[in-house]
Structures are given as structure tokens and as C-alpha cells.
């Protein structure tokens, strides 16, 4: 398992904070702010872990997750879904589709780092 994390999130300041936390821990971090280019980006840059927000401009996180799980090449790709507290239906749907882990906003830096490490088997 490598150390490449792709963060797909449209909130720039969250992206910046996650990028800082992960880079400080030695991870190579790419970012993307819309859902429409997510699949192509994942296929081209082949991340080891994806952090995926549910609510994105363009395709939603749930649609992207479903597409990833329908493709043999990305079926087992670890995906950490970011949902908002109170959005229980989104979380249930992500679980049904096959999300590897969930994290509710607002999350702590420690939680997100621990989740990425766990998904990458570090």
C-alpha cells in the first residue's frame, strides 16, 4: 500500500486543513473540488485512499461511490465518506453502497488521521 490520498471536497478550507494534517504525517495529497471529474481523476492518479464528501457540486459523493463500486478496478479502493451530522439517510445509503468508513462533520484532526491510517493499513 502506497501513501497517496485523494481528497474530493468542495470546501477549500477543509481541504487545506486535511492536506496539512496528512502531509505532516508523510502522506502525498491530491485534491479535487467537484464531483464530475472524480472518476477520471481516480482512474488516472490511482490513489491509495479516497476521502469523499457526500455533497459536492456536479455528481454527488454517493453517485461517485456507486460508480467506483461497480467497477472491478476500484471495487476495493478504500473510501472514507464525509457526511454531515443529522444526515442519517446519506450515511445509510453510503453504507449500503459500500463505503469503507464514515466520518461526520465536524470531525477532529486526530479522527481523520487515524481513519486514513487504518484504511491504508498503516
Amino acid at each position: 500500500m502506497g501513501n497517496h490520498v485523494l481528497v474530493i471536497e468542495d470546501e477549500p478550507n477543509i481541504v487545506e486543513a486535511i492536506r496539512f494534517i496528512l502531509m505532516r504525517d508523510g502522506w502525498d495529497v491530491s485534491t479535487l473540488s467537484d464531483g464530475d471529474r472524480a472518476e477520471d481523476t481516480i482512474r488516472s492518479c490511482r490513489p491509495d485512499v479516497v476521502i469523499l464528501d457526500v455533497m459536492l457540486p456536479g455528481r454527488s459523493g454517493l453517485e461517485i461511490l456507486a460508480a467506483l463500486r461497480a467497477d472491478a478496478a476500484t471495487r476495493s479502493l478504500p473510501v472514507l465518506m464525509l457526511t454531515a451530522k443529522g444526515q442519517g439517510r446519506d450515511r445509510a445509503e453510503a453504507e449500503r453502497i459500500g463505503a469503507s468508513r464514515f466520518m461526520s462533520k465536524p470531525f477532529s484532526n486526530t479522527e481523520i488521521l487515524a481513519s486514513v491510517r487504518a484504511l491504508a493499513g498503516v
Binding site: E11, N13, A84, P106
Partner: peptide
């Protein structure tokens, strides 16, 4: 919640 997340992390 997104803004709160960003504030908390930052």
C-alpha cells in the same frame, strides 16, 4: 457544518 469543520481543524 462544513465551515465548523474547517474552523475546528484549522
Amino acid at each position: 457544518l462544513s465551515v465548523v469543520s474547517a474552523v475546528r481543524s484549522t
